[in-house]
């Protein structure tokens, strides 16, 4: 099997321009696209730039577009293209500025992450534990599987085609917010932030993000849509929010539900939410 060959066309260049270069590699069983890139790097093109870490689909470093489809290169088997006579095209993620070859500038995502107010838990039980049922956290654990590959950000047309990089947080950060909002212990009201700062309204539920997520997170249906509903319903009905927050997901054990204004986080959580939720103490 090892004498089989494959041809790849790889983007070489940076944001100011570049070209596709063609390389031939010998394939072996189980080979993934990232292996091919490394092979080229070692034997043909030492300067070829690529990001990777784990080579096991766990770190989310190696996102790129393979034949136009957003993929983790370390989880994309070369054999998937065996029947395709055309060379395998490897291009950097399109929604982000190219630094070099397959490496893009994803710093915008780290800035967005910083805008998310830190988790603010309710106090512990008298015995020092936090009690939560497995059933109640499974949904959030799904969001927390996110490996921050940013393939969904890369795919979402709001970011990609409409350039709404600053007004729209994108799917990854909407589910990060959903994960916090649905966290049984969290006490912050994040709805206004979702609406104003994170622009949840821009999402028109195309589900393209869900399709490309290598972690198979049901981003749209489990994360974004429920959040959209909450923002719409609860926004004009604070009582409803309180009922849900205090009575629904939480086990109604807590007499007090203090909302902590996190001083060190970005001050986008509105103060009035603090007052509003403080009423729940009674």
């Amino acid at each position: 099997m090892s004498d089989k060959k494959a041809t790849l066309k790889i983007y070489r260049g940076d944001n100011d321009g570049g070209e596709f270069k063609t390389y031939e590699v010998e394939t072996y069983p189980g080979m993934v696209v990232l292996d091919a890139i490394h092979d080229i790097q070692a034997k043909q093109e030492p300067g070829l730039a690529v990001r990777w870490n784990c080579k096991a689909g766990r770190c989310g470093s190696c996102g790129a577009e393979v034949n136009g489809k957003p993929k983790l290169m370390c989880m994309t088997r070369m054999s998937a293209y065996d029947d395709d006579p055309e060379p395998i095209m490897v291009t950097p993620m399109k929604a982000f500025p190219i630094l070099k070859d397959l490496v893009t500038d994803v710093s915008q995502n780290f800035r967005m992450a910083q805008k998310i107010p830190a988790f603010a838990p309710r106090p512990r039980e008298a015995d020092g534990t936090h009690r939560m049922q497995q059933d109640d956290i499974e949904r959030i654990q799904e969001f927390r599987k996110c490996i921050e590959c940013f393939l969904c950000q890369n795919t979402c047309h709001v970011i990609r085609d409409h350039g709404k990089k600053e007004d729209f947080a994108g799917p990854r950060f909407l589910i990060a917010m959903a994960g916090l909002d649905m966290h049984p212990l969290d006490t912050l009201d994040r709805r206004e932030l979702l609406k104003d700062e994170f622009g949840i309204g821009y999402c028109n539920i195309t589900r393209c993000c869900t399709e490309v997520c290598p972690e198979h997170i049901n981003i749209t249906d489990n994360g974004i849509i429920p959040m959209k509903e909450r923002v719409a319903d609860d926004y004009f009905d604070p009582v409803r929010w309180l009922i849900r927050k205090v009575g629904g997901e939480e086990k109604k054990k807590k007499a007090s539900l203090p909302v902590i204004q996190n001083e060190t986080s970005t001050p986008v959580v509105k103060k009035k939410k603090t007052e509003k939720a403080a009423k729940a103490d009674e």
Binding site: A118, F119, P121, T129, R131, M132, Q133, Q134, I137, R144
Partner: peptide, 20 residues
């Protein structure tokens, strides 16, 4: 470990709701 939980980590749970 408790501190991680306090910072938002969601460990799998026991039947009585504690960290499994």
């Amino acid at each position: 470990v408790k501190e991680l939980e306090e910072w938002g980590a969601l460990f799998d749970r026991t039947a009585d709701g504690r960290i499994l």
